[in-house]
Every structure is written in C-alpha cells, then in structure tokens.
Design a protein around this nucleic acid. Structure first.
Ligand SMILES: [Mn+2]
Ligand SMILES: [Mn+2]
Ligand SMILES: [Zn+2]
Ligand SMILES: [Zn+2]
Lengths: 140, 140
DNA sequence: TTTTATATTAAAATGATTACAAATTAAAAA
DNA sequence: TTTTTAATTTGTAATCATTTTAATATAAAA
C-alpha cells in the first residue's frame, strides 16, 4: 500500500516514523482531493490535538524532497499537494477552487520546441486548465 | 503603442491616469521579462521615491481585472506578471528562476478530453516547463 | 533499559499581501 | 482659470502564510 511505501522510503532515508507522520501519510493517500496545508493540518489536529503546523510543513517538504508528492502551482491563493505522481494534468474551477485530475495520453511534449529543449535540462512540466464547473455555472 | 492602449483602457473604465500608473505601464511594456511586484516597485521607486507598494498592488490588480496583464503561477515562491496576453507558455529555470516565453503552434487543447471539457466552461489554460538553463547547468 | 540523534512543539520572526483612513490630486464642472 | 469632487495615493497597521529557533519529547539503536 502507499502508506507502507512511504514508511519504507522514510526509513531508507534514515528518517524516523512518528505517529504524526503516519497520520499525514494516511490522510494524503486516502483522499482523492489535492489538499492544502490547512486541509491536512485540520485532519491531523483531529487525531493529535497538539500537533504543530510546523510538523505538517516539515513532513510535506520532506515528501516533496523524496519525490513522493508534488506541489500544484495552479493558484497563488493556495498551495495544493498531490500524492499522485503519475503524469497527469489538472483543471481548477475558478469559483469553488476545486481541482480535478485530467488523465490523457496527449502529453505536452510537443508544446516544447526543439530550439528551447536543447537549451534546458528539462525536469518537469505542468498543464493547468481554468474554468467554471457545471455546479458553479448553474448557481450564477 | 501599448502604453497608449492602457491609458485608453483605463479612461474607458472611468479610472484616472496618474503618473504612478503611467510609470507602471511603461515598465511593463518596455521590459521583456516577467516582473514580480518587487521588480516593478523597485523601478517605480526610482522615479517616484515616495510611491507606495499598495499603489503597485492596486494597479496590477486593476490591469489583471481588465485582462491586460496575466498572472504567471509557475512558482509559489514569487508572483510574476506577464503583459503579453497572446497565448504562449513558459519555461522556468529552477535554479536562477528566469522565465522564458515559448511560442508554439501546438496548443494544449488536445490535452483536455471532451469528457472534461463538456463539464466546464473553460476560461484559460497554462503550460509550464521546469528545468535547468544552460548557464546553470554549466555552473554546477 | 539506556542512550542519542532526530522530531515535535510553541513561540517568535519574517515576508507577502490586504485593509484602512487621512491627505493628495486628476479631471469634471463652473 | 478656478472650484469642486470623487478617485487615488500614501503610510501605517492588520492579516495571513511560512520559516526559524530553541527547548522538550521520543523513535530507534545500542
Ligand atoms: Mn492530481
Ligand atoms: Mn510570457
Ligand atoms: Zn466550481
Ligand atoms: Zn538558470
């Protein structure tokens, strides 16, 4: 399971397995959303009332460093994290801010001309779409 | 010219033309980079030593509202603005943070499946690439 | 069980952005 | 041109997200 994998990855990196960290793993891998720091903190607080925000920040940063979760830069208002590291893109409703996954075979590779590609060591790519979801269109 | 256009757009919107605003227009349309609030503030300060950061924020926000500049969400560390509203994408060097434009005929349209498209009113899309520029590759 | 290096916590510091209210000014009206 | 007025600018304070710090607690090795 994903959680076991994260525990193993942390162990391999010489990091300790703490109940706070495990709770964060559990939250990340049992929700299909793209949680913010506060989403995660709110959940963890329910299980460890004295947990510190710092712990949440630290753990997320460590996971990003291990390449096990990714930051979604779709909005400046909030920082979202994605425990799904398979290549995929996202669409966000500009009204309700919900983020949905988009899986497609069409990669953005062909959007990067050779002339640019040969001047960079490419490390990653992201595609974001913005719109109004049907729910929000209906409302207003 | 672009600056004249912005003055006209502001006038049409019933907004006043102030020297601070014009200086911001000038900076935006005579630099090819993707400036941050601080880049702009630093420049304006050179011409109006007493200018307020608030004025810079307000003017940028107004211009975004008018659809005359766009926010680039390529990084959470900094907020970049782009006075070029033609469809194009960006590549950022993760080391030196420089952002380069990418113009290509290949749109990301085909990365958005019909199944998703029919559930949203699409308003925009962004493609970001991340990598190391040749300069930074050479250095380390 | 003891030891020790790492992690957690609470609090303070930092940095970015927004809110506010008083002073200034662009531009319309006279 | 001068007067008027509503919008804008400014300086300050408030807010919010994130990082730093140092003391305390604890996972895991010995
Ligand atoms: Mn996702
Ligand atoms: Mn650009
Ligand atoms: Zn919505
Ligand atoms: Zn670089």
């Amino acid at each position: 399971m994903q959680i076991e994998r994260m525990i193993r990855r942390f162990r391999e990196a010489g990091l300790k397995i703490t109940p706070q960290r495990v709770a964060i793993f559990e939250y990340l891998y049992t929700t299909t959303s793209h949680p913010t720091v506060d989403d995660i903190y709110a959940y963890i607080t329910g299980r460890f009332p004295s947990v510190s925000l710092t712990t949440v920040y630290n753990t997320l940063q460590t996971m990003v460093g291990l390449g096990e979760i990714e930051e979604i830069a779709i909005s400046h208002e909030r920082r979202n994290f994605d425990p799904d590291t398979r290549p995929h893109s996202h669409i966000m409703c500009v009204k309700c801010k919900r983020i949905e996954d988009i899986y497609t075979d069409n990669l953005s590779e062909n959007c990067l001309p050779e002339s640019v590609r040969k001047r960079y060591r490419i490390l990653g790519q992201r595609i974001y779409f913005y719109g109004l979801c049907s729910r929000c269109v209906a409302e207003k």
